[in-house]
């Protein structure tokens, strides 16, 4: 059995690299990513599991990192927005103007990236079902949904 008390030196696999961080067992993954590892793409929004601005991928699945303790994810592959580069979803967000202020964008992009990995050709209902996990306070939902639909369409 593994036990952590006080402070723990964790090795976390983030964006394909092993990163070390000294954490309290009570530290959320969100705060460890931002404050210990300098990965500020995941945003602290509501910190209550509602807004999705802190979404990251754990073994390819989207999770809200404000509701996960860093000590829970040892051995799992963590993907943050810094780990994506020029993906079809990112290009589609640019082309379809899928963002306004940008605060929610990393969470939406990671969620959409996972969606397209699980369902390469999702219908609109599946897209809406997945995107319900994230809030955009600028209310730019149409552009976001169009971006995801566009990223899933065959390209010429």
């Amino acid at each position: 059995m593994i036990t952590y008390r006080g402070h723990a030196a964790l090795k976390l696999s983030v964006n394909g690299e092993v990163r070390e961080a000294v954490v309290r067992p009570a530290d959320t993954l969100l705060h460890v990513l931002r404050d210990r590892l300098g990965l500020t793409g995941a945003k602290a929004g509501c910190e209550n599991g509602d807004c999705g601005a802190c979404t990251v991928l754990l073994d390819g699945k989207p999770v809200k990192s404000c509701m996960v303790l860093a000590v829970e994810v040892e051995g799992m592959e963590i993907t943050t927005i810094e780990g994506l580069s020029d993906t079809p979803v990112q290009r589609a967000f640019l082309e379809e103007a899928g963002f306004q202020c940008g605060f929610c964008t990393p969470g939406f992009i990671l969620n959409a990236h996972a969606l397209l990995a699980a369902h390469p050709r999702p219908d609109r209902e599946t897209i809406r079902d997945w995107l319900e996990s994230n809030l955009c306070r600028c209310t730019g939902y149409e552009g976001i949904e169009n971006a995801v639909a566009s990223a899933s369409a065959p390209r010429e």
Partner: peptide, 13 residues
């Protein structure tokens, strides 16, 4: 953040 410290245990049985 969670302000208070805690002990984390990961049992396997």
């Amino acid at each position: 953040m969670i302000p208070r410290n805690l002990v984390y245990n990961r049992p396997e049985t």
